[in-house]
Deep mutational scan, measured.
Amino acid sequence: SQVHIGNTTFTFDNPEKAQKYAEKYAKKKGLTVQKNGDVWTVE
């Protein structure tokens, strides 16, 4: 599972961890999370 934030990609061994990280980061920065398969993009 991966989380894309700008030009940075974070890889997680667990989809739940990836989703939590993406949502927490997005909330903190006032951004949105797009999910595509097991990839979350914060923008």
Rank of each mutant, 00 (worst) to 15 (best):
T41C: 15
T11E: 10
N7S: 11
K35Q: 08
Q34P: 00
K29E: 09
A22W: 05
V39S: 11
K29R: 13
T11W: 15
K27R: 10
E16C: 09
K17N: 12
T8Y: 15
K27D: 08
H4W: 07
D13M: 09
G37I: 01
T9L: 15
G30V: 00
T32G: 05
K28G: 08
V42C: 03
T8F: 15
G30Y: 02
V33T: 03
Y25A: 06
D38H: 06
S1C: 15
V39M: 10
Q19G: 03
D38A: 07
W40T: 04
V33K: 01
K27H: 09
V42N: 01
Y21C: 14
D13V: 06
Y21E: 03
T8G: 06
N7I: 06
H4V: 14
E43I: 15
D13K: 08
Y25R: 02
Y25M: 11
V33A: 10
T11Q: 12
Q2I: 14
V42Y: 02
K17L: 14
I5P: 02
E16V: 11
P15Q: 08
Q19N: 04
K24R: 13
G30H: 05
K28H: 09
F12K: 02
K28S: 13
A26I: 03
A26N: 02
I5V: 09
K28Q: 13
V3E: 02
K24W: 15
G37T: 03
E43D: 12
V3H: 01
N7T: 09
N14V: 07
K28I: 13
A18S: 00
F10W: 08
T11N: 10
T9E: 07
Q2E: 11
T8N: 12
D38K: 07
T11M: 13
T41Y: 14
S1W: 15
T8H: 15
K35R: 14
V39P: 00
K20M: 12
Q2D: 05
V3T: 01
L31W: 13
Y25N: 04
D38N: 14
Y25L: 13
K20V: 08
A22N: 01
V33E: 02
Q34S: 13
P15I: 06
Q19K: 11
H4K: 15
G30L: 03
E16A: 10
K27Y: 07
E43S: 13
D13G: 06
T41I: 14
P15T: 06
G6N: 09
Y21V: 08
K17S: 14
L31M: 09
E23G: 00
K17M: 14
E16D: 11
K24P: 00
T11R: 07
K24Q: 14
K24S: 13
Q2F: 13
Y21A: 07
K17I: 13
H4E: 04
A22S: 03
K28A: 13
K27G: 07
F10I: 15
H4S: 09
V39H: 12
S1M: 11
T41S: 07
K20Y: 11
D38L: 09
Q34N: 12
H4C: 14
T11I: 14
I5Q: 01
P15Y: 08
K27V: 05
N36S: 13
I5N: 03
A18E: 00
A26Q: 03
T41W: 10
L31N: 01
T9Q: 07
A18F: 02
T9W: 15
T11Y: 15
Q2Y: 14
V42H: 00
G6R: 10
K20L: 12
V33S: 02
E16F: 08
T8M: 15
W40F: 10
Y25H: 06
K27M: 08
S1N: 12
D13Y: 07
F12T: 04
Q34G: 06
E23V: 04
G6I: 05
V3D: 01
P15N: 08
A18N: 02
F12G: 03
K28W: 12
Y25E: 09
V33Y: 05
E23C: 11
E23I: 05
T9N: 08
N36I: 15
Y21K: 00
K35H: 08
T8E: 12
A18H: 00
S1I: 14
E16Y: 11
I5C: 10
G37N: 06
E23K: 06
Y21P: 00
G30K: 04
N7R: 11
T9R: 11
K24E: 15
G37W: 02
K24A: 14
E16R: 08
G30N: 06
D13A: 10
T11A: 07
E23R: 04
Y21T: 04
K35L: 12
N7K: 11
K28E: 14
N36F: 13
K29L: 14
